[in-house]
Simulated scan of single mutants.
Amino acid sequence: MTVELTESQRDLWDRARAFGEEHIEPVAMEYVESGEWPWEVYRKAAEAGLIGLPFEEAYGGQNASLVEQCLVAEAFCRADSSVGIALHGAMTGCFVMDSFGSPQQKERWLEPVTRGEITTGIGLTEPDTGSALAELTTTAERVSGPAGEEYVIDGEKDWIANGASGDWVATLCRTDPDVDPEKPYRGLSLIVVPTDSEGYDATPRDRLGLDAAEHARITYDEVRVPAENLLGDEEGQGFYQTLAWLEHGRVDIAAAHLGMAEGAFDRALAFSKEREQGGQPIGDYQGMRWKLADMRKNCQVARAQVYHAARTIDAAERESREVDQSLIEQASIAKLFATEMACEVAEEAVQVFGGKGFAREHEVEHFYRDVKAGTIYEGTSEIQRNTIGKVLFDEL
């Protein structure tokens, strides 16, 4: 770890790394091969105080900073890319709940997460509207029902983490049917939908990688939830709540993919010291050392940007300090560089292993498959470039 940390942050990093080595690495291949969600590992992580860190202490959390969240995400995914991202993704819906939920909502929907009892999701992407959130078509109509004021939700979401196995999904809906063509992002709201609601149906997706995690396609067929499930004190705040989530989520995802790259590098370095060709370890060849040196360099550069972005956001939001950089730009730079770098490092790790790297029995094979998703979810690489470009031209 080359990033300067406080004593408590160093302790957290050491605990998270030790947890990964003891509880993730030994069983990871079992979950990758079976496709089961790692509930047992998740509960152990909760017992170790490594789940729900950013929540307020009143709801079982530790009021952790974004830097501290990133340390845990990095350590988990370094231990294993698939199990790590499953644990990391268990709290996908929690940022908006922690930031915009009422005390009653937090008590009901956050505390069980810190105990490792439930997972959560956030429903943004739709089959025909991926990155264009303002064009979503899922609707929520407020009506008076037998149980009082309710929302009736209709629509579809796709590629939603924990959409099938999770307990609730914070769903972005259009609550104002009168769409302003010039400002279509207005009139959107986030509403908490328990996954056992009548009319809610989710089908897990069969994917290229992330075998131990879960993403699902969801249909909402006249799903009724109480009006009190709205996040925030009024309708129409959903788009801005989502932007706040993306700012944090993109840095968090960058840290997770930094961890994946490091995990692939760790395994490639170890293999290069053990595998012999021509009467010597392959790591003794200059060409191999240059390859490993480039992998190491890329990981170190990514780490610097990831934690710079996390610290900048912490300074602005937790310490109320003025910063001279765009937070959304820093988040986009971190995600863009770290996720694309992880793809390059994982590919090189497979190359170090040669034919063995192409076999499912070796971990680098699924690291290679897993990292690709990072360039797509929570804003594609192209979206990150668009965002950075808009900042450069004073459009954000």
Rank of each mutant, 00 (worst) to 15 (best):
M1E: 10
E4Q: 13
T6K: 00
S8G: 03
Q9C: 04
D14V: 15
A16V: 10
R17V: 15
A18M: 04
E33A: 12
E33V: 04
P38T: 00
W39L: 10
Y42Q: 03
R43W: 05
A45H: 12
E47H: 02
L50Y: 03
A58W: 05
A58E: 14
G61W: 09
Q62A: 03
L66S: 03
V67L: 06
E68Q: 07
A75R: 05
C77H: 03
C77Y: 03
R78P: 02
A79N: 01
S82E: 03
V83E: 12
G84P: 10
A86D: 12
A86V: 09
A90T: 05
T92R: 11
V96M: 01
D98I: 06
G101H: 03
P103D: 00
Q105G: 01
Q105T: 07
K106Q: 10
E107C: 06
R108C: 05
R108Y: 10
W109R: 00
L110K: 14
E111L: 12
V113C: 09
G116H: 07
E117H: 04
T119W: 07
T119P: 11
P127E: 00
P127Y: 03
S131H: 06
A134M: 11
L136T: 05
L136E: 03
L136N: 08
T138L: 09
E141R: 15
V143E: 15
S144E: 15
S144Q: 12
E150I: 02
Y151P: 12
I153H: 07
D158W: 07
N162D: 04
G163C: 13
G163K: 13
L172K: 07
D180F: 05
E182Y: 09
P184T: 14
V192T: 15
T195C: 08
D196Y: 03
E198A: 13
D201R: 12
A202T: 06
E214C: 05
H215S: 14
Y220E: 00
A227F: 04
E228D: 11
N229E: 01
L230F: 11
L230M: 13
L231A: 08
G232K: 10
G232R: 05
E235H: 07
Q237E: 10
Q237F: 01
Q237D: 01
Q237I: 00
G238L: 01
Q241M: 13
A244Y: 08
A255W: 05
M260L: 10
A261S: 05
A264T: 06
R267T: 04
A268S: 03
A270C: 02
K273D: 11
E274D: 08
E274T: 07
R275C: 14
G279I: 04
I282R: 00
Q286Y: 09
R289I: 13
K291S: 04
R296D: 14
C299I: 14
A310H: 08
T312W: 01
T312Q: 10
D314Y: 04
S320F: 14
V323D: 09
D324M: 00
S326L: 06
I328D: 11
Q330M: 12
L336F: 11
F337M: 09
A338P: 13
A342S: 14
G354T: 05
G354I: 01
G355P: 09
G355T: 14
G357W: 10
F358D: 11
F358G: 02
E363W: 08
V364Q: 01
V364F: 00
F367R: 02
Y368K: 12
K372A: 08
I376F: 14
I383G: 02
I383R: 13
I383A: 14
K390C: 10
